[in-house]
C-alpha cells in the first residue's frame, strides 16, 4: 500500500510518459539456462523512472551525471558479486560473458534495461541462485529456462516470496522432448473428454457471444 501511495504521488509529478511504464521499482529479472556442462545467468535490470536517482548514486561514482565505460564495468561487477550461484551446494564462479547498457535518456524515461550474461562452466544436479543486489528498491523475477531438446528435466522448484532466490533439482534425459505426435497419441484415452470439452467450450463461447452481442448492441466502443 505504501508503495502504491508513493507511486500515485510520483505519477502526478513525473514527466510525460511516466504513467506508461515502471515507476518506483527496480525490476531485476533473471533467466537461468542449464546445460550438461555449464550454467548461464541472463540478467535484465530495469530501473523505474523514480529509481534512476537511486541507481545513479550507485553507478555514477564521480558524480558527473554520466555513466562512463569504467562505471558501467564497475556496476556490472558489483551485480555479479551480489548474486550467488551454487551448483550441488558449492559456490560456482561466475564469468561475465557480455553486458549492455542503455542510454541515460532511455533510463530517464523508464525504458532502459541493463543486460548482462554470466556463466559458470559447472553443471550438476541441484542449483541455488540468490540475488542480493539492492533489495530495498527492487522487485525480482527468476526462472529456469526450459530446454526440452536437451532432455532437461527440472523438479522441486522453490523460491522465496520476493523471488530473490530459487533452487531446483535437474537432470538430463536421453534427448529430445516428445514430438507433438506423441502428445496426440498419448491423449488417446482422453479423446472423448476432449471432444466434450470442446463442445462445452463452444457452448460457453456462444452463450458469451450472445450476452456480448446484446451488450455491444446497446453500446459501441468505437
Amino acid at each position: 500500500m505504501r508503495r502504491m501511495g508513493i507511486g500515485a504521488l510520483l505519477a502526478l509529478s513525473l514527466p510525460e510518459g511516466a504513467a506508461a511504464h515502471r515507476l518506483d521499482e527496480y525490476l531485476q529479472a533473471t533467466l537461468i539456462g542449464v546445460t550438461r556442462d555449464a550454467t548461464d545467468l541472463e540478467i535484465r535490470l530495469t530501473p523505474g523512472v523514480a529509481m534512476l536517482p537511486v541507481l545513479m548514486a550507485v553507478i555514477d561514482q564521480d558524480r558527473d551525471g554520466r555513466i562512463s565505460p569504467e562505471e558501467e564495468r564497475a556496476y556490472v561487477g558489483r551485480v555479479a558479486r551480489e548474486v550467488e550461484l551454487r551448483v550441488d551446494g558449492v559456490p560456482a564462479p561466475l564469468s561475465l560473458i557480455e553486458s549492455q547498457f542503455p542510454t541515460l535518456e532511455a533510463m530517464r524515461e523508464g525504458l532502459g534495461t541493463i543486460r548482462m550474461k554470466l556463466r559458470t562452466p559447472r553443471s550438476g544436479h541441484t542449483l541455488r541462485f540468490e540475488n542480493r543486489h539492492l533489495p530495498q528498491v527492487s522487485v525480482y523475477l527468476v526462472n529456469c529456462l526450459a530446454a526440452p531438446s536437451d532432455g532437461l528435466v527440472v523438479t522441486r522448484q522453490k523460491r522465496d516470496e520476493a523471488q530473490r532466490s530459487i533452487e531446483f533439482e535437474y537432470s538430463f534425459g536421453a534427448g529430445a522432448a516428445p514430438e507433438p505426435r506423441a502428445a496426440w497419441i498419448a491423449l488417446a484415452p482422453f479423446w472423448p473428454a476432449a471432444i466434450g470439452m470442446l463442445l462445452a467450450a463452444r457452448m460457453a463461447v456462444l452463450i458469451y457471444s450472445g450476452k456480448h452481442d446484446k451488450r455491444t448492441s446497446k453500446s459501441s466502443t468505437s
Binding site: L27, V139, L141, N143, C144, L145, A146, E161, Q163, G196
Partner: peptide, 29 residues
C-alpha cells in the same frame, strides 16, 4: 511468490521457462 511482471513479454522471443502450478490432467472436466 509474487510475480511483478510478464516473464516472457516483448523481447523474449524463442524462450520457454519451466512450467509450474497445477497440471490440467489433475483438473476435472
Amino acid at each position: 511468490y509474487r510475480v511483478a511482471d510478464l516473464v516472457l513479454g516483448p523481447g523474449q522471443d524463442g524462450k520457454t521457462i519451466q512450467p509450474e502450478g497445477l497440471k490440467c490432467s489433475a483438473m476435472n472436466l
